[in-house]
Each structure stands twice: as C-alpha cells, then as structure tokens.
C-alpha cells in the first residue's frame, strides 16, 4: 500500500516482525530471534527489580528495595482483595504473569525494541493457560458444582437457560478477549506512534507537529502499558475467583 502514495513510506507493521538475530531467513522453533532477545531483557528486568533491588534485606528499605516491596504488596493485595484469602497460594503464578506482561509492555516502548506482548501468539498462550488452569482448577476444587457458575440462581426460572447460554458463551470468549485486549492495545499504540513518526518524516519543515503528537502519544502509551498489565493481572484474579468461589 505504501507505493500507492509515492513518497510517504509508512510501514507501521514492520516493527512487529519476528527476525532471526544471527542471520538466516527461516524462523524455526529454536531460532534465536528478537523475541528471544526481548524476552531475555524481560527476565533481566525482573531480576534487577525483584532480586537485585531487594538484595540488601534492609529493615529500612533503599529505593530499589522499596520498589520491589511495593510491587510485591500491590499484587499481593490485589489477589487478596479480588479472590479472597485462599487465592494467595497462587501468588507466585500471578506475580509471574504480572511481571512478564508489565516488563514486556514497558520495554516495548523503548525505540527500536520489540514488543513481545503485541503478538497474539504470546498473549493467546498466556490467556489460554489462565483459562485452562481456571477451568481445571474449578472442576478439581468444586467438582460438578462448578457448572453452577453458569446457572444464575437469582434469575427467574424461565430466564435461567438463556442466561446459562449467555454465561457459557461469555466464559469461552474470555481467553479471546483476554489475549486480544493486550495484544491489540500494544499493537495499536505502537502502530499509531509509527504512523505519526512517518508523518514527521514526510512533513519536512512542519515536522514538530507530529513530533509533539508522538510525545503525547508516548505518555499515553506508557499509561496504557501499565494499565494493560494491571488489567491482564486483575482479570486473571477475577477468573481465578470464579474457580475458587463459583457461586455468585
């Protein structure tokens, strides 16, 4: 489509390409790609924040330790608030999801970086693992009474089958919306930023207008990156609550 309008060469989707890092064109399953690099950066960031930051074990925390503790307490409190006290045993899993999504989103905002969470493959695996875990856990903990999640007792009897159908559909749509929300938000922001940056290159002397727009957009994207990580995590907690307490 770029050829259609001559000089304006905006390819907003290029930044999402998976490329091998060390030559070669084919992307096999074990190929070291930019996905590998930026996921490794995520691991590094998690280690820096949670392990190196808290290494002092100081009673009066340093700045780094304070950040690690705040992150810890934030997620801990979220799980406690949403799922109740018995959800706390899933704390490491939810913390893992939050740290991965958060750092993938934020590191993806670095120019020339690669946003792993903008790929549906990544978010779909995360969302599906949450979905399968919640479903299996629901049946293991509650047996067949987990199905009462779909049978709304408070509704009139005539409406209940219809509501059950709606609940069932919305239950199976969960992993779709859960994954596409994150990937879509990440992709949209980055693509729009790229489009505006392309305008800056094409406008010549008036370049500063799109640059200002990109700056504002970048601030918004930072907010979106954090909020999407928060939302992904809190929705995981909400789904987990259904498995732990299926009765409305």
């Amino acid at each position: 489509m770029a050829e259609a309008n001559g000089g304006l060469q905006i390819k907003p989707m290029d930044q999402f390409m998976v490329k091998p890092l060390f030559g070669g064109d084919t992307v096999g399953i074990f190929t070291i790609t930019n996905v590998t690099l930026w996921m490794a950066m995520t691991v590094l960031a998690v280690t820096l924040l949670m392990v190196v930051g808290a290494r002092g074990r100081a009673l009066v925390p340093t700045r780094g330790q304070s950040m690690a503790e705040l992150t810890y307490s934030f997620i801990y409190k979220m799980i406690e608030d949403v799922t109740g006290r018995d959800g706390v045993r899933f704390f490491p899993y939810i913390m893992t999801i939050f740290m991965f999504v958060f750092f993938s989103n934020v590191l993806g905002l670095i120019p020339w970086s690669f946003t792993t969470t903008s790929h549906i493959a990544v978010t779909a695996v995360l969302a599906l693992s949450v979905f399968i875990t919640v479903t299996v856990l629901g049946f293991v903990l509650n047996g067949a009474s987990f199905l009462r999640l779909f049978w709304v007792d408070s509704a009139p009897l005539a409406l209940r089958p219809i509501l059950a159908l709606i609940e069932l559909i919305s239950y199976f749509v969960r992993p779709v919306s859960h994954s596409i929300r994150l990937a879509g938000a990440m992709m949209a922001g980055h693509a729009v930023a790229k489009v505006f940056a392309g305008f800056a290159a094409a406008l010549g002397a008036a370049f500063f207008i799109p640059i200002l727009a990109v700056t504002a957009l970048y601030a918004l994207e930072l907010l979106v990156a954090v909020i999407q990580a928060y939302v992904f995590t809190i929705l995981t907690c909400v789904y987990l609550k259904d498995a732990l307490h299926p009765h409305h």
Binding site: M78, D81, V82, S177, I180, R181, G184, A185, A188, I227, Y230, V231, I234, L235, V238
Partner: peptide, 19 residues
C-alpha cells in the same frame, strides 16, 4: 479495581474493531 475492569471491558470492544 472495578473501575479498571469496567474500562478494560469497554476498551476491549474498541480494540476488536481496531483489529
């Protein structure tokens, strides 16, 4: 928390249309 959950649900549909 409910504010953000509500915003997320509303926003998801916009993202679907973007998609």
């Amino acid at each position: 928390a409910f504010l953000f959950i509500g915003i997320a649900f509303a926003e998801a549909l916009g993202i679907f249309s973007f998609l």
